[in-house]
Design a protein around this nucleic acid. Structure first.
Lengths: 149, 149
DNA sequence: CTGTGTGCAAACTCTTTGCATAAGT
DNA sequence: ACTTATGCAAAGAGTTTGCACACAG
């Protein structure tokens, strides 16, 4: 892959518009003002788990208001090209993870928060007998946590 | 637990209204006509994965039409008392599993179908370091399958 | 009787879409 | 210029809720 990877950017503390633009170009996405702003928010501070709604609120907070539909479009675009990972946590709304590496998640039932776990699904995948004609696309593991009584 | 368990009923090929009524009573639910009908549909034929929508369609098919809202209420009630397991698969709609035992799921991305896998999450759970003050409520593992190319 | 469940429709939340306008190359 | 993205509002899907009526204990 030519250009800068997502990890490179994240580790660089980002912010430089130049890198963001190249990151988008690398994935075949036009560097629009909105996308650039969102990428900065998403990758500017370590791994994150965001919804369209909360990301739009953040954008508003930094004086970069944009349509909620645009945020949805952008997040879907980013996920489709591999910049983000769509999480299937089963809360009502779609959550996007800025870390695309193979890892699992804690889901805190009391607060609704999500956190990464190092445990990956690939090891587990090896012991599974896959049905004829299919291959494993992804293994999602969610550890749901409840307050200890 | 006094009375008949869900497994007992399922293995008995069910249908007897007497058992269904006791099953509901055991879990503190009134045996209304609608609930009885739904239980028969749900547990009358092996393990199943249903949505409110498809279950309502089945009820209609057997001349037991009822409001979709009632089906939603019933499914939620059943899940809350432990008769069903709510699956967090992340497709747009909520899926209920008639098997409440610890097991995982295949999700066929082409057809949207769901199938059980014997692999359980409890073993995996043992190697996870749980955050202070929390305990594991459930471990959901979904193996997403794609047509092999 | 008393309380709970049902049915219906309306409300609600999250997400996508259509179309005119704006912006990127 | 030509193409693709944005913004807005409307449409959509899935689910829940409020209230009058029906039914179970």
């Amino acid at each position: 892959m030519a250009g800068l990877s997502r990890e490179d950017l994240a580790s660089r503390a980002i912010a430089s518009e130049k890198y963001v633009r190249r990151m988008l170009a690398t994935h075949g996405l036009r560097p629009t003002r909105q996308r650039i702003g969102l990428i900065k928010l998403l990758f500017g501070s370590g791994n994150r788990h965001v919804t369209a709604d909360c990301l739009a609120a953040e954008a508003r907070a930094v004086q970069m208001p944009m349509s909620l539909a645009t945020v949805y479009n952008a997040l879907n675009n980013f996920a489709n090209v591999g910049l983000l990972r769509r999480l299937e946590i089963g809360v009502g709304r779609t959550v996007f993870d800025t870390s695309t590496s193979d890892h699992s998640h804690f889901f805190f039932e009391d607060s609704g928060e999500i956190a990464d776990i190092a445990v990956d699904g690939s090891r587990l995948a090896q012991e599974i007998v896959v049905p004829e004609g299919y291959k494993i696309a992804k293994v999602d593991i969610v550890v749901r946590l409840r307050k200890a009584s």
